[in-house]
């Protein structure tokens, strides 16, 4: 959570947020997302409040990485830095080697609070279309993108409904569909399944893995649910709190494809969740 309220409405145009478009494909050794010594301090002098102190981790192309940590650790602040919404105080976050200084064009963000991230005056389909308008796509492609995104989250039937007519889980799926229609290369999700019921949560977790497979996306998920992190991730970044720092990056070596029942009953699953849990439980 940000310590100070954001300024009312910054309306700066963010057209040139990236220095340059990449001309060559990234090599296998360049991480897709590179966070190096990132720090975020709000305020200055006596009243300054350090939320994040020296975070370093990487996310490779096509990876699912989960960030776990106790609540209030500054996970949302971290995501806002990665999404270019807040500037980092020191250190840097980079995509394909380019420092993030504003919302990157290849990134989409699914917010924690679906309730306040969908436009209530737009139907589901129009919510999907809004971020695509400035891309000036041909009508057919626009329709195709929305259709396939809605189909991916199983909401093809709801495209003419308003978000508030849908259940919480369905609204979160709309938010995910909006991100999918945007066709990002990197998808960042902030506790995306925190406020939905258990069954929907399993469905959305599997949807997340399906997206990675179908669209070859790089996905970064913030969660406070350790089981979820181990189930989803190729690697889990465990954060310690106040100020946030990386305790350990745990490689999850569970076989693919993952399945809610078989994967979660593997001895390795129990071992790895215990490893992550003991990192978080351990007094700092």
């Amino acid at each position: 959570m940000s310590a100070r309220p954001a300024p009312p409405l910054p309306l700066r145009n963010r057209k040139s947020t990236m220095a340059q478009q990449p001309e060559t494909r990234i090599s296998a050794t360049t991480p897709r997302l590179d966070v190096a010594h990132l720090a975020k301090t709000y305020g200055s002098g006596e009243k300054s409040h350090t939320v994040i102190e020296d975070l370093t981790f990487t996310v490779d192309a096509g990876e699912v990485v989960c960030i776990v940590g106790p609540s209030g650790v500054g996970k949302t602040t971290l995501l806002k830095c990665l999404a270019g919404l807040h500037p980092a105080s020191s250190g840097r976050a980079a995509i394909d080697g380019r420092t993030i200084s504003g919302p990157p064009p290849e990134m989409a963000l699914v917010f924690q609070d679906y309730n306040r991230s969908l436009m209530p005056w737009l139907t589901v389909r129009k919510n999907l279309v809004l971020p695509l308008r400035h891309l000036k796509l041909p009508a057919a492609e626009l329709k195709e993108r929305c259709d396939s995104a809605l189909a991916a989250v199983g909401l093809s039937h709801a495209d003419n409904q308003y978000p508030w007519q849908l259940s919480g889980g369905m609204q979160q799926r709309v938010a995910i569909a909006r991100a999918l229609a945007y066709r990002p290369e990197i998808l960042i999700m902030d506790e995306p399944f925190a406020s939905v019921d258990a069954q929907t949560r399993f469905d959305l977790e599997d949807l997340c893995l399906k997206i990675r497979k179908d669209f070859n996306m790089t996905i970064l998920v913030v969660t406070h649910d350790i089981d979820e992190a181990v189930y989803l991730a190729d690697r889990v970044v465990v954060l310690g709190s106040r100020p946030a720092r990386v305790l350990k990056v745990v490689d999850v070596d569970l076989p693919a494809p993952r399945d809610q029942i078989t994967t979660r009953s593997l001895p390795d699953f129990a071992r790895q969740r215990t490893e992550v849990l003991s990192l978080i439980k351990r007094p700092a």
Partner: peptide, 12 residues
């Protein structure tokens, strides 16, 4: 602010 963050992330 959430709504405005959405608008910025999607580069409206």
């Amino acid at each position: 602010n959430d709504l405005m963050d959405v608008a910025r992330v999607y580069r409206l």
